[in-house]
Design a protein around this nucleic acid. Structure first.
Lengths: 209, 209
DNA sequence: ATAGCCGTTGACTGCTCAGTCATTTTTTTA
DNA sequence: TAAAAAAATGACTGAGCAGTCAACGGCTAT
């Protein structure tokens, strides 16, 4: 029985993970189209080119599949957002990085954003609440950067947390609008507008000395 | 047979409308708690203290009940928002009026806003799309006012439509956040922050003459 | 009082779908 | 190549629920 010492993952685990990610991809597509409730496990199985029974070998329930999709994508989105924020220098640049990261990810992962924003959801595990949870850390990072920029009098002294959430709201709102209809503007234009708009609000008030 | 000439509505119609509004109220509550899919017509019936059969005398389907709830409340919200915008003088005041009208209505109609914003929805008639439709007119009114204020050089020349939608996004975002968690700030504080923030972004750029 | 009308009722029907599991197919091992 | 193990399958079951309808009771008119 050839027992290789190195591999941490057995072949079984590798295959299992591959199947899981296949199922997740299929599920993402179906959930994005139909929403949680209207999507059926049979449809997910068909999309994944598997029988329903196979799905239940890798996941315990429809709800677990849904959670796996969300957690998978939310994790990636959060990681990328944090990375971009960290790479940026000033508070203004970090805000810009936040907006751009979200816009970029939204373009790449249309289906995931449909689930998050447009989706007729209705899962027992409110996706809205989950999304907000995953937003907390990036938004907090923005707030920290904003706070220090205020201390240095670089920007207008708005409450940092509130301002950071406002940046998030503006981004979310713009993306939702883009996903809902057929946008007349490019993503770049929308993102640039937001960034300029926020920057305008951040200008320190003219001092009347 | 006493036939009063005046009444336009027959007794039958009055009773019918009364029952419909009773059912709508019950349905609003149940839909806000459970979302469209998870809510059952039996629950709505129980909440309205009626038998399920009676519900189907006044509405054709669960979907029709849902539409009735949304249309009823969206109509009222739009009417009120337009009214407040119209009553305000300057563009800045109109923006202020918009934000305040939404905040006020949200306080009064918690359940309706839950359906709109938090709700695990999943109806065949996407409520998100409906809400956006009903937003169009108020937002357009803002855009018109903004456009003329820009022409008068009262405010910074942002694209009017985009700016108006941004005001809507900020309001929606703030309200969603309030509904999702237990807010640490008062509604007044949140609304005032938004209004000040927007006004700051609208300051005409300092001219370096 | 009583006949007839009409709003109300809730047990019932049919359908959809999540989740199961005995069977079949594929892969591994010897 | 054959036996054993593992993976995949899809027909089936049971539960939940939208929508129906025959029967009921309370009100009105005579």
């Amino acid at each position: 029985m050839p027992q290789l010492a190195q591999p941490i993952k057995t072949k079984k685990q590798v295959v299992s993970e591959f199947r899981q990610s296949e199922i997740i991809s299929a599920a993402r597509k179906v959930f994005a189209e139909k929403g949680y409730m209207a999507a059926t496990v049979d449809e997910i199985a068909a999309e994944a080119a598997l029988a329903k029974g196979t799905i239940y070998v890798y996941f315990e329930s429809k709800e677990q599949i849904y959670n796996a999709v969300l957690e998978n994508d939310l994790d990636a989105l959060r990681a990328r957002t944090l990375e971009q924020i960290a790479a940026a220098g000033t508070a203004r640049e970090k805000i810009s990085a936040y907006v751009n990261a979200r816009f970029k990810y939204c373009e790449e992962r249309r289906d995931f954003f449909r689930i998050m924003y447009i989706e007729p959801s209705s899962s027992p595990v409110l996706s809205k609440a989950k999304a907000r949870e995953w937003l907390r850390e990036p938004v907090h990072q923005l707030a920290v950067a904003i706070e220090s920029a205020i201390a240095q009098k670089l920007i207008c002294p708005w409450p940092p947390e509130l301002l950071a959430w406002t940046v998030a709201d503006l981004t979310t709102g713009a993306l939702q609008r883009r996903l809902a209809g057929t946008p007349t503007t490019t993503a770049r234009e929308d993102a640039d507008f937001l960034i300029e708009f926020i920057n305008a609000a951040l200008r320190p008030a003219q001092v009347e000395n």
